[in-house]
Design a protein around this nucleic acid. Structure first.
Lengths: 155, 155
DNA sequence: TATTTAGTTCACAACAAACCGAACCAATAA
DNA sequence: TTATTGGTTCGGTTTGTTGTGAACTAAATA
């Protein structure tokens, strides 16, 4: 694979990555920026390079970058004697994805508990279903906890 | 708790449930309908009762109901000599939530593999991070598979 | 001091999603 | 046959999102 071919393929994956994160509620441009910073061989981009590479306006870039930084998905470094910011993908503790799922499942679990408490007939179809669902959620949350232990065997 | 109090609280939880599912990409009304069918003591609603209870238009109800049915989240029954449809929450095999997560994680895993294949420097910061992420994903996917086995110990 | 650089902010245009009312249709009832 | 019931479909309004260009600011440079 020539460097040029690789470069083109990386660009395609940036787009693919973007689409993936659109589905997670990212705004399109934010997903593309994140993809750019993660996928390309160049892992440090300036504001202007991002604009140039993705063909977007300064304002779009400015907003998306601010959001991504607040969310903790990117960070930037500065070089002495250089006013530009160099953005990079932020290596979060890789539990984040898992922790997000955990949060969602927990919130769902709390919901099922609330609903069950309000059912006047604990043997209604839905009540029975909710209990089985709650059980599944517990089993699953346990296995998440287990995975987390496996992945960070510190302390 | 009086029946009236319970009823009011259930209505609130319908709203809460709706907000939860908005986040999952449901349209607001669809989430409220799903909540209604799952949360309230009454677990069988007609079209008109749904409209009445949620104060929405016939067209909104019609569209949302169609979508929910296509997605397999609700179903309806009919009674002999009664043209009305009675809608109910559809008890899906409770693995669905888990399987959705599994799909998402798998697609993310495939993406990381693709990205890694295109990295020209396998020791770059992002490449190293991607490998650790891939590892986490594998551990996690394993534990999902395990949970699934625990939950459906048939065959 | 004037100019350039590196962005931010604002006002708005373009588009999409969500919802509604009104018209409509098909099946049953009168 | 006409009226009513139980919806569906169509067209349009409202609301929200995404992105832009132009004006602005603050720091560095000339």
């Amino acid at each position: 694979m020539t460097n040029e071919e690789r470069f083109q393929k990386q660009r395609e994956v940036v787009e693919q990555f973007g689409r993936h994160f659109d589905k997670e509620g990212f705004q399109p441009i934010a997903g593309r920026i994140l993809g750019l910073l993660l996928v390309m061989d160049k892992e440090l981009y300036t504001f202007d390079e991002i604009i140039e590479e993705l063909q977007i306006s300064k304002s779009s870039a400015s907003n998306a970058l601010r959001n991504l930084e607040i969310r903790g998905d990117i960070e930037y470094i500065t070089l002495p004697g250089d006013r530009k910011r160099y953005f990079k993908f932020r290596k979060q503790h890789s539990g984040t994805i898992i922790e997000d799922m955990e949060k969602k499942l927990n919130s769902l679990r709390e919901l099922t508990i609330t609903i069950l408490e309000l059912k006047s007939d604990p043997e209604s179809e839905n009540a029975i279903y909710l209990r089985s669902m709650q059980h599944s959620l517990c089993v699953f949350l346990d296995s998440i906890a287990e995975s987390k232990l496996k992945l960070q065997p510190k302390d």
